[in-house]
């Protein structure tokens, strides 16, 4: 023990600064514990922890910069080109007469076996889409809408044509499939004389129903600008002109919103006469 050199004396005052920083850190930690114990308060907890760690940081940084040598050291760098004889010796070991890598025929069959295993291992990945689920393309093309499916509002009530007010859009969902991601649609009442193109799903005294999902990336086109008869997608600002069969007028969307053909059922409520006129939402390879 006695052989150890004495602790080096740093510049005066530095040790005191470090001690103060560490004490502040401890105070921050205690502050955090007390705040937590008293019921917790996010801001104070954050500040206390920040003080605790900042105290540590300042103390350690001053220590590392003022009490120990900084800079002025050099380490040699042996480079990465291996000595040629080393390289040759390693190569000799790897290509020795009994070396496995020289048995070309065996290696080829081993490669075949491993490839077969690797390909076989891919098969269970298909189960990620369970076999009892609908195949992608059919699922994307079909929605719960169909002949006779009644239109429900977001509160689950069936909708009469006269319930569709002028000047606002009503979100509608298929009866029996309200949770489906591709089914949301909206009904809106327009003046038929302002139509510049007939709605693809037809209209009942100006009441039209379109898919709510933007044909660009599938966001709900939630914003209705009633004066212009346009709906706007909040995600990428595609807008669609409802007077012209919901064709895109600006933004990145390229296809019109699919329409939903409707009629009034014998009970007086609106119901669909079929599925959307096109697959709703974003495009995909097999979309007609």
């Amino acid at each position: 023990m006695s052989r150890r050199p004495p602790v080096a004396a740093g510049p005066p005052g530095v040790s005191r600064r470090i001690v103060l920083s560490f004490l502040a850190s401890a105070a921050g930690a205690i502050g955090f514990a007390v705040t937590y114990g008293l019921g917790g308060q996010t801001q104070w907890e954050g500040v206390c922890l920040a003080v605790a760690f900042a105290g540590l940081a300042i103390g350690l940084a001053v220590w590392g910069r003022r009490l120990v040598p900084v800079g002025g050291y050099v380490e040699e760098h042996e480079g990465f080109t291996p000595p040629p004889d080393e390289q040759a010796m390693t190569a000799a070991v790897l290509t020795a007469p009994d070396s496995p890598i020289r048995r070309r025929g065996l290696l080829a069959t081993l490669g075949l076996a491993l490839t077969a295993l690797g390909v076989a291992a891919l098969f269970p990945l298909r189960s990620l889409l369970p076999w009892d689920r609908t195949r992608p393309i059919r699922a994307l093309k079909e929605t719960p809408w169909g002949p006779g499916v009644r239109l429900l509002t977001s509160s689950g009530q069936p909708l009469r044509p006269e319930d569709v007010p002028a000047g606002t859009m009503v979100g509608v969902f298929p009866e029996g499939g309200t949770g489906a991601g591709d089914a949301p649609a909206f009904a809106v009442r327009l003046q038929p004389e302002r139509f510049t193109r007939p709605p693809s799903g037809g209209h009942l005294d100006g009441v039209v129903v379109y898919s709510l999902l933007c044909t660009h990336a599938g966001c709900p086109v939630g914003l209705y600008l009633k004066g212009t008869g346009q709906v706007l997608c909040p995600c990428h600002q595609s807008s669609f002109n409802l007077f012209a069969n919901a064709t895109p007028v600006a933004g990145p969307a390229a296809r019109p919103l699919p329409g939903l053909p409707i009629e009034v059922g014998p009970d007086g409520f609106l119901r669909a006469t079929g599925d959307f006129t096109a697959p709703p939402g974003a495009g995909f390879w097999s979309r007609p």
Binding site: G46, L49, V51, A57
Partner: peptide
């Protein structure tokens, strides 16, 4: 020392932001 100090700085800033 200096790396530990940086670690503590990162923690301090992140907890200050988080709080």
């Amino acid at each position: 020392l200096r790396s530990l100090a940086l670690f503590a700085w990162v923690l301090a800033v992140l907890f200050a932001l988080g709080g």
